[in-house]
Amino acid sequence: MSKIKVVHYINQFFAGIGGEEKADTPAELHKGEVIGPGMAFQKGFGEEAEIIATIVCGDSYFNENIDKAKAEILEWVKDLAPDLFVAGPAFNAGRYGVACGTIATAVQEELGIKSMTGMYVENPGADMYKNKVYILETRDSAAGMRQAVKSMTAFALKYGKGEKIGASVEDGYMNQGIRVNFFEKERGSARAVKMLIAKLNDKPFTTEYPMPVFDKVDPMPAVKDMAHAKIAIVTSGGIVAKGNPDHIESSSASKFGEYDIEGLCDLDESTHETAHGGFDPVYANYDSDRVIPVDVLCDLEKEGVIGKLHTKFYSTVGNGTAVASSKKYGAEIAKLLKADGVDAVILTST
């Protein structure tokens, strides 16, 4: 059997081009090159598969120019005509995960080429694409590269060879919500009793019918009288008072901060900066109004368009931060806003 031809997609960081300052790197095609994590994949593939090209694209470039980047990459992949397209792994890098999911799905749906990626379960790309393309579950950081390469390599070979893919729990990809009929060895009543006994004994058991989690929040009613409303700013863009007095972490933030902006009508490099480590901070450090529009809201308050801009803003770093932490910060911030009589919130994200 001939080798499985693989095209690999990675971002600017894993290609060794650079970090956030290079996140606007446009898509590049490297024919015949194996780069970054591709080397570990190639080693795992042995003689069974071969990476014939690597496509590199900056995370910001991809996400800000989705249609253009997608079209360019699809054109290249079409010409290369691989047997399999592998993107990532993206771990918990949000933009990278979305890029991997988007391009892997597009390759599969538009070119009919088998496609897969890997990322952490809380990566926003996972929820967006897990029903459309195989997403192997990885750890939340590149410290999990070895395991990720191992599971993705095994899956890639199986998938590439056209072997039957088992259930998500068997082959390590994220549940796609697809049910397949098959005969169990034991009948349902016996399985149910075993499960119940395990449960009563506080032993682990796996339900055969997991309940879907729907967590939708209904939209709150609109503001009726904006000219008398108090508006507060909240951000996940990491804007903090100069010097980051609360020491909010640049990723996986363990807290949020409250900052006084009473009487302040313009943020600049002497007053505020960003603690966020997930984007190039140059623009936000120079003028934090680019992330939280204090200057404009201050003007609008003077003009009477809004009643009042709340004198405090709340901020955390939304970079690899756990969903559970974000929920907690959101709930705590809401309590503080309530106590201060705020009517509506503008929340900005980078």
Partner: peptide, 14 residues
């Protein structure tokens, strides 16, 4: 955060 703040009763523009 958007959802928790909205859940608490505030309209939020993201």
């Amino acid at each position: 955060m958007v959802k928790e703040i909205e859940r608490a009763g505030f309209p939020v523009a993201h």
